[in-house]
Design a protein around this nucleic acid. Structure first.
Lengths: 354, 354
DNA sequence: ATGAAAGCGCTAACAT
DNA sequence: ATGTTAGCGCTTTCAT
């Protein structure tokens, strides 16, 4: 016996109506909790529903109302604990507000991201929260499409230049500056930065400040270099570090240079792990051979040896806020001012003196 | 201007049909890729669709076909990297097969899990993959409901006694035995085990072997104790370790005992981190004061000090297999025999001699 | 407060 | 190959 057959006999509003001896419309009103229904009818309908084990078909409901009560969430890599935490925040708020979460993975590629967006629009999600994998305006037509379709959109972690969409992100300038000052004051001059993002240029000027986290981070770095009157080396900003292989290649590149970096900043924990593993393979020690700073203050960073200097960000709270704001949009409510999410530099023993 | 207004003017099959000068049915056939359509009509319809920027409404499609091409995935805690990895495996396979993933969090409570299941059934998901939070048959009526509804179901990580549903899980007996032998041979006699699950009894006998991972793990432990002719202490099996507070209470309990445990096994990385933090707070050192073993071989376990002994499990592959099998079910294809997923004990320096 | 009937956007059945 | 006609299960007019 096939599964489909069984499913087809699920009771509908019409069945409940018949059982309760009322019209289909009236049963629907009672079941859906809208319109006016008398006590008597309500009771009879509920009893009938109970008896038939009726359960509403949300798809049919969405077809009429135009709302699916579903939020699409697209991240670069679900496996990344950073997004895991954000997702948890989003899911917690969404569920409490009666929204569901449809998951999408972009694999940090523009093509997959566009595909995920298309699929979600077709599924009639009410809004999309996305951590865009690219800051190239050319790669963001699909984001504009979301708005054109009349759906809500919030960016997470990363902004897109030229796209006027609320972005839930930390201002990294101060913390990046602080971390860089710590490295500079320890004598470091060549400081590398690795990110999984795709950028429009190999390095960015502060003019784009406030849009991409990389721009902010680099701006913070530049600021620190300027304060200490040291020349900034933009060539050490490395993008597309989105796989072990890519990272190994970058490390290769960095260390085959005449003057390798003496410090490295990893933009997330996956990159950090990959870098640390790669350093281990090459027999390089932290902080003796390379000082190390990473983004995200995960618990394990405190118990590794040496404990890692990190830039902490309130990821879970940001996830919650992203969900809260997009749901406010959907309900036409005022979300209020965007809170400041501050990143904090936490120095530990992974930074060595030169 | 409200969002809803804009959305209402999205082009439909009827619009495309009119534009292409064909019947609605024919346009639908061309767009949906079914039935027979002439070259000429296909081209005209596609051109019209392009021109109008038509995009199908998957909800409407699902209403007729009865299939939503959506898989529900319910885990205890999305934030847990174990599930993050599993989710990645599931999402990867699902997407390649044209399925979407609707996420649900159970918070390791039966009530939330039941709620998540109900919501997913209402949303007409084709199948559900779930890591059940409880092995009590009384808590699993909602799972039976899924099958009664004619939907596909796969259990992940944990089985439910009395529920004849395929479960994708590792057989932990061998690895738990191995880990326990390592601890016993190092002189340990009081070995605690912490899990976030809810069980029907405080400890389990091997009679339930093969169903819950806890049963398997405990069975492996018992086996090791028997081999070394040491009396097993069932009171050290601690369930419901699903929050920092709960874990702190358990540690309290364990160490206020006349004879505290000399070794501890954590059933997942979140528990492990929480325990390690708690031990740190109390000034207890691993392995001097407590030997430590945890499940899941995450990268950071190798670079902490001391490196942690772990029981590795192929989580990502299991996620992939779960998705593959449930999709086979949905398509009426043969999934083949369930592969053996073996857990491997990897001894590192977190086990001390007594 | 209630009911009849008309849709939502699509696919399916039955013609031709 | 194409068109016509019914639906899917629900909400929403519009009557009454």
């Amino acid at each position: 016996m096939s599964l489909g057959n069984i499913r087809s006999k699920a009771p509908t509003v019409a069945d409940v109506a018949r059982e309760a001896q009322v019209s289909k419309a009236q049963a629907a009103r009672a079941l859906g909790g809208y319109g006016s229904v008398s006590e008597d009818v309500l009771a009879r309908v509920m009893a009938a529903a109970q008896k038939l084990a009726y359960r509403p078909n949300e798809l049919a409901r969405s077809m009429n109302t135009g709302r699916s009560n579903t939020l699409g969430v697209i991240v670069g890599d679900i496996e990344n604990p950073h997004f895991g935490l954000a997702l948890r925040g989003i899911a917690d708020v969404a569920r409490q507000a009666g929204y569901h979460v449809l998951l999408g993975n972009s694999d940090e590629t523009a093509a997959d991201e566009q595909d995920a967006v298309r699929v979600m629009l077709e599924k009639q999600v009410d809004g999309i929260i996305i951590a865009p994998c690219s800051s190239l305006p050319a790669d963001s037509a699909h984001l504009a499409q979301i708005l054109a379709d009349g759906r809500a959109l919030k960016l997470f972690d990363r902004g897109v230049p030229g796209l006027a969409v609320e972005t839930i992100m930390v201002d990294f300038t101060a913390s990046a500056r602080q971390a860089t000052l710590a490295l500079l004051d320890a004598g470091h001059r060549r400081i590398a930065y690795l990110t999984s993002m795709t950028l429009d240029k190999p390095f960015v000027s502060s003019s784009e400040l406030g849009l991409t986290p990389v721009a902010q981070r680099v701006a913070g770095m530049e600021q620190a270099f300027a304060e200490r009157e040291v020349a900034f080396v933009p060539g050490l900003i490395k993008t597309r570090a989105s796989s072990d292989a890519a990272i190994a290649a970058i490390i290769d590149d960095l260390f085959h240079h005449a003057v390798p970096p003496s410090a490295l900043i990893a933009s997330d924990s996956l990159i950090a792990m990959s870098v640390l593993r790669e350093l281990g393979n090459r027999g390089l020690k932290v902080p003796q051979d390379l000082s190390f700073v990473m983004f995200d203050n995960f618990p394990w960073t405190e118990i590794v040896s040496p404990p890692l200097s990190v830039i902490a960000q309130p990821v879970y709270e940001m996830g919650r806020e992203a969900a809260r704001r997009i749901i406010c949009d959907l309900r036409g409510e005022e979300a209020g001012v965007m809170p400041n999410f501050d990143a904090a530099f936490i120095p530990r023993r992974s930074i060595g003196q030169i």
